[in-house]
Design a protein around this nucleic acid. Structure first.
Lengths: 189, 189, 189, 189
DNA sequence: ATATAAGCGAGACGGTACGTCTAGTCTTATC
DNA sequence: GATAAGACTAGACGTACCGTCTCGCTTATAT
């Protein structure tokens, strides 16, 4: 065993929790390093030991919080499963996680490193799950096989994203059904 | 007419131009009040006299620059007209105007006043034109009359927006055609 | 006679009055050009038409206000006349004129032009009167003829000035008598 | 002992040094916070953390620089000792310290807090030394015991001060002798 | 009577320094 | 030796005030 004080592994968790608390309660853009540190009962240096920047913390907080938040059911009915997943996305957007996402998208406009990390670590893994879902549905013959999958997913999900980010309209269950009503005809086999 | 020296509209224009130059050349988040003032040959106070915040300037710059940038043609063929308009949007997103939009969306996550102004002054007027277009197409019998127009427009345009803001894929002419391929079947009468 | 509207000589007076009012009521360092203009019901340009800077106005206000404020009596008794004059100085220092003087001395530390103007136009004329008074007393045989007159006047008056400017002690009638008690023996023939 | 990084006394010293350099080389009123910070290699916040205002820095610079600059000799000959001390004051007034003093007196006209600090921390301690000196001389029978000590010191020193601050005449060794020639007769027992 | 011209109040202008804020780094005493 | 505390550098922010410039109005002389 090395000498000296042992690492406080709990601190890392408290930092992520404080990040979510602050962003969730005050909204995107109101996050201060001093406050994360104070809220976690931690020195700022401890944060910077593990993360290179404020937004790296936010990404990890987002990843930890949102793991398995929106699973894909597999009932065999592709439309129903998709609807179920989209409802999960709506719930996430309305939760504190929504504030984390908004914070990161805001910073993504400014900082290409954050943008890259957000896409690679948050967006793409979830997109991959959706892609797999859609391809399964194609193989089962529930969805047409001549569509561009990537763009199909855009048509399905991006209305939720643009409303989250621009705020011109509600993000709710009703929206999910309206989107499907319009998009599904172009997808169904 | 009020007494006193009148507002220097040339200075106002130089401020908006400097804003666009700086945002266009350096990207969102790289805009500094001192630099706008220096670039416009203006004192900072002159900016603050007429705009309440940096982002109010950006909104005005955006509005001035983007007027009539993406007109709606009316050939009678709704799909063709829509495609033409979407290509215009793609062009705008790739121009310096795209940087203005990204700057404002970033700030919208943080500042509700900016978010409101962006929607009311930029987004909604353009959305109204799109809405009118779609309703015209419905009346002509080219588009189904049982869709939710607002959501239909989301399905059409939001893929462009989410790619602009999140950056997971290209925003180009190809995307326009792919989106139409998926969405149009659900719209066509 | 030149064409055009004639100068409003009353405005000049209102400017000086406003300057004294503001300095007198709020103290040195609290004088703003905008407020002088507003107080005098005048545009700032009108002030700058007649005076090159804010402190040039203050000097003129001081000169106008203090003319003949502290006359030298001539009773034939040099000590008594001197005491009477010093009492006048004490009164001036306690009046709004004191604030004008403090303002100008403050600016004199910073601006050599103001310093020069203050000495040449305010200080030296008064000093000349004192010098004349002292020389008269020497001629009459009431004051020794082997003193350096300039320095004798310093010994007499500068205690009042240093107290005005540094504020370590009161400037009152009692001080006048105490100063004379100490200095007069070195002056009396 | 409190936790956390301790005050960087070297930075503190560099701030005071930069203050003296700037004031000494450019004169009173030419001191800029940004330049002190740049000259000291320090952030502005560090200055404001330890001093409430620019002039609080100047006072501390003055105190540090002038400690023991003008000691009182004690040869037993009061007039000679006084002359020696006054020559020290003349030297100080001609040094960069003179610029610090002029800066503080200028601000004293405007800011009562600075005025109070200047008197309490700089003026009064030195005045106390002079008072003690004079009382010693009285006890030794070299100076009359019926004078007001405070005013005697005014008569001695204030000619130097009023010339420093108003600038109507030189502050040099000659002045010291001339002042003593006039004032000493009123003091000597 | 009309044209011309200077002075005027109002207030916008360019510029400079201010004091504040917060990111990310560095240093100390403590555990 | 890792930690909490917190001081550190750097740099943008929004405000205040100076002295200048410009507008439309007023007041006078010259035609």
């Amino acid at each position: 065993m090395p000498r000296g004080r042992t690492r406080d592994t709990d601190a890392q968790q408290r930092i992520l929790d404080a990040t979510i608390d602050l962003l969730g309660s005050r909204g995107a853009g109101q996050l201060r390093m001093d406050e994360i540190a104070a809220g976690a009962g931690v020195g700022k240096q401890t944060i910077y030991r593990w993360w290179p920047s404020k937004h790296a913390v936010v990404i990890d907080a987002l990843l930890q919080r949102s793991t398995k938040e929106t699973p894909f059911p597999d009932t065999g009915d592709a439309r129903r499963d998709l609807r179920s997943h989209m409802r999960g996305v709506v719930r996430v957007f309305s939760s504190p996680t929504g504030a984390l996402i908004r914070e990161l998208v805001a910073e993504s406009q400014v900082d290409a490193v954050v943008a890259r990390a957000f896409v690679d670590r948050f967006w793409q893994p979830r997109r991959d799950l959706s892609t797999a879902f859609l391809q399964r549905a194609i193989e089962r013959g529930q969805v047409r096989d001549d569509i561009v999958v990537e763009v199909a997913l855009d048509a399905i999900y991006s209305p939720l994203w643009s409303r989250l980010l621009i705020g011109y309209g509600p993000v709710n269950v009703r929206l999910v059904d309206d989107v499907l009503a319009i998009v599904w005809p172009g997808l169904a086999a």
